[in-house]
Design a protein around this nucleic acid. Structure first.
Length: 513
RNA sequence: GCCCCCAUCGUCUAGCGGCCCAGGACACCGCUCUUUCACAGCGGCAGCACGGGUUCGAAUCCCGUUGGGGGCACCA
């Protein structure tokens, strides 16, 4: 029996027993490869790992899988670091922070992999394989098997003479790991027992002919060497688990690690249609959501809802609450679809939970991006926003709505844009309303909300006999340029008498012309 | 083709054999509040994929069917 197939005890499948890590012994990792912009799926995986470790008081390891020089980039790496910081996922070991298992970039760990490879070969867990894909396929055909079957194990037990013969032909072998001849059973934390039948997973390549170690090797090697106890990752990796488990068993037998980590495969996040949320899908782009104005804590909340729930009758929670309640065993197994509406509703709830001063700060970048602010706030601007932000707090779902809601307070009177639909909604009596309002307001003794409202009600509702609904519409349009705005009288108070009068007059002129 | 996973309202989910002729949230539709829009409150619509078992009893367990998804590289 081959060494790789001696480890048949169910316990080495990653199942528990006395050896299961708990509490502060828990070590998780997230290990993105730095290609492209941060994906919400990546962030959710990181989040679940982080929540579990933090819940247990364990350790979070950040490792970079940058073994593919052609696709990896520093910009992407920076973006991932920024993304994690933005959502508040911190880590205890990793690039930039160091740790007992440094380095944490796979590109700097080549010697480690080379050492492990030698031991795998010496231990009989891996062997040199000379077959080309064409030869494998040809053999399947010749034997009347499905040519798509995958590697057939042809080189498993080559004699030294056969090996020499291949070398004499100038062929360079890849290294393959020998899969056991029994079923591989995995006790998945979210899916329960998963059985991969013997023979269904071909011996797989771990080192290229040119000597480069491949992901199927380096990923479990690092997990083993870094003492990872729990591997939470996407379901798309479930079918690669038997290979990793077999490797982990070998590492244990070789004395490289103490145990096989436990695996938990998170349900996929789906996009529109039914497909896995792909990098092409704009909803997969974390930073697009940030631009749209999702709060990081709302992002954490919503992502947490995708496959997990905090309580039967509750779905709004803070990151700290998530950490306190999180348990891997509560993760659901069915795929979840990204629902923008729900994400924004959750965001609205978080927006409302913010202290007004906090919301004000969060809104500033969006006002700047819209060109409404330039550099630091002037005292006047700050006063305006302190008055206005509380008024719009219940009116926003995402921060990018702020410029539209608050813009009228920040632009010069002559720059106010009156939107088409607001203009179109004006009724014939609008001119009279503006005249009567101006008359009522010019000499108003005290310019504050209640007084403004009282004066206008007297002039319009009682004076002109209009319903409030129709009386105040034209004023809103004149003052804010929109049909929808913060409360009118408060807005007027904030704007001040002078601007208000100018804007009423401007719209009046426009109606004549 | 082969292997694996999944299956409760449109969507995310609660449910781990009796508390369920199935609960919450988003969305949608009404109503209340109201100067617009929101917020808030109240009410409504809407689901256990199908077929067999097991059991006194099944959304919950088992098998099958169907449907959906993922994976099958000298990419990660």
């Amino acid at each position: 029996m081959s060494p790789a197939s001696t480890a048949t005890s169910p316990d080495t499948s990653g199942a528990a027993g006395l050896d299961e890590a708990t509490g502060a012994d828990v070590r998780v990792r997230f290990c993105p490869s730095p290609t492209g912009t941060p994906h919400v799926g990546l962030v959710r995986t990181a989040l679940f790992n982080w929540a579990w470790a933090r819940h247990c008081g364990g350790t979070v390891v950040f490792r970079v899988e940058d073994t593919d020089a052609a696709r990896d980039s520093q910009e992407s790496m920076d973006a991932i670091v920024e993304a994690l910081a933005w959502v508040g996922i911190d880590y205890d070991e990793g690039p930039g922070v160091g740790g007992p298992h440094a380095p944490y970039r796979q590109s700097e760990r080549r010697e480690t992999y080379a050492d492990v490879v030698v031991r795998l070969v010496e231990g009989g867990y891996a062997y040199e394989s000379f077959s080309t894909p064409e030869e494998v396929e040809e053999r399947h055909r010749a034997a009347g098997r499905d040519p798509q079957l995958g590697y057939d194990g042809f080189d498993r037990d080559l004699t030294p003479a056969q090996v020499q013969a291949f070398r004499d032909q100038g062929r360079e072998p890849v290294l393959r790991v020998r899969m056991p001849d029994e079923d591989v059973v995995v006790e998945d934390l979210v899916r329960g027992t998963v059985t991969f039948p013997a023979g269904s997973v071909p011996d797989f390549v771990v080192v290229r002919a040119n000597g480069q170690p491949l992901y199927p090797l380096v990923n479990p090697v690092d997990d083993a060497l870094m003492g990872i106890t729990h591997v939470l990752r996407g379901e798309d990796l479930l079918s690669s688990t038997p290979r990793q488990v077999v490797l982990h068993r070998a590492f244990v037998e070789l004395g490289l690690s103490r145990r096989v980590p436990r695996f938990g495969h998170l349900p996929l996040v789906l996009g529109e249609g039914n497909r896995k949320l792909s990098k092409r899908d704009p909803q997969s782009d974390l930073f697009l959501h940030r631009e749209r104005g999702l709060l990081p804590e709302a992002m954490v909340n919503y992502l947490g809802l995708l496959g997990w729930s905090i309580a039967p009758d509750r779905d709004v929670f803070t990151p700290a609450e998530m950490v306190a309640a999180f348990d891997v065993r509560d993760i659901g197994a069915n795929p979840a679809r990204w629902d923008q509406k729900k994400a924004e509703a959750i965001n609205g709830d978080h927006l409302r939970m913010l202290a007004p001063e906090d919301l004000l700060e969060r809104v500033l970048p969006y006002l700047r991006a819209a060109g409404l602010l330039d550099g630091d706030l002037t005292p006047a601007q700050r006063r305006l926003l302190e008055g206005a932000v509380p008024l719009v707090q219940t009116r926003m779902a995402v921060l990018s709505e702020a410029p539209g809601m608050l813009g009228f307070l920040l632009v010069a009177d002559e720059d106010l844009v009156v939107e088409e639909d607001a203009l179109a909604a004006l009724r014939p009596e609008a001119a009279d309303v503006l005249d009567a309002s101006a008359a009522a307001l010019v000499d108003l003794a005290e310019w504050e909300t209640a007084a403004v409202e009282a004066a206008l009600r007297a002039a319009l509702v009682e004076g002109l006999g209009l319903k409030a609904k129709f009386a105040f519409g034209p004023l809103r349009t004149a003052v804010t340029g929109r049909r929808v705005s913060p409360p009118l009288f408060e807005s007027m108070e904030l704007l001040g008498r002078e601007s208000t009068m100018l804007r009423l007059a401007a719209l009046r002129r426009r109606l004549e012309g």
